[in-house]
Simulated scan of single mutants.
Amino acid sequence: MTLLETLTHRHTTKAYDKSRKIPADILSQLLEALRYSPSSVNSQPWHFFVAENDVGKARIAKATTGIFSFNAPRVLDASHVIVLCARNTLSPDYLEALAKQEQADGRFATDEARELAHKSRSGFVKIHEELGDVPTWAQKQTYIAQGFLLLSAALLAVDATPMEGFEASILEKELGLKEKNLTPTVIVSLGYHSDADFNARLPKSRLPEQSVFTTL
């Protein structure tokens, strides 16, 4: 499919075929899409929990109770489910780990270049620390990763469901997120839709171009 065909074919899946599993090579590509997602100053302020079996999915589904119970089947019946979490802080140790990884990956020609990049990123983090919005900043970057995951899934003919409808406090307790300095931002189910997925048969509906674009 062309990119436009992929974009118009992609939809938020409402029901999954529980019998169908994502092949390992496809899943690997989807996880790499998350890992290679862009972020401000390459801060990578995220962590991803991947549920590959019924036990893992059941743990995540605990957060889809009460008013969010409609999302439980979309967690339990999917092939895989990913919890995208944002970091609450970016500590000096974490920033140093980023710099070491960049150096190991050959991004710096000199020690001076490494120090300049590290100083620049630390400066951006300090700005957000002073503004008191590091968690919000990190969550914005995590949504970029979600976008990369959704598009990558569509390109690989994998269905997906992004969900904010869950009890964050339950998920925090279940996965020990507070101790890990993480906030659950969004859940994405992945797999293949079933015949019960009414949304797969509906046409796309978006505002017209003149409503969303202004040429300067």
Rank of each mutant, 00 (worst) to 15 (best):
L116F: 09
K57P: 08
P45K: 03
D197I: 02
D77G: 02
D93Q: 14
S211W: 08
T185S: 14
P162G: 12
L177H: 13
S152Y: 10
W46N: 04
V134E: 01
W46A: 08
S19W: 06
D195N: 15
L190W: 05
A51K: 11
Q103H: 12
L31F: 10
T214C: 06
S28D: 13
R59Q: 14
L7R: 08
L90Y: 05
I60Q: 01
V134M: 15
R107I: 00
G56F: 01
F148P: 00
W46E: 02
S40I: 06
F70T: 02
L4R: 09
E115Y: 05
S43K: 05
A97L: 08
S69A: 14
H128M: 00
M1W: 04
L131A: 11
S39K: 06
S28E: 15
F166Q: 03
V75K: 09
P135G: 02
S205L: 12
S189Y: 14
S122V: 06
R74K: 15
V41G: 00
H9V: 04
W137N: 03
L207I: 03
E32R: 11
S37W: 07
S152M: 09
A63K: 06
A33K: 04
E167S: 12
G123P: 03
K100H: 09
F49C: 04
A157S: 13
A168V: 11
I187F: 10
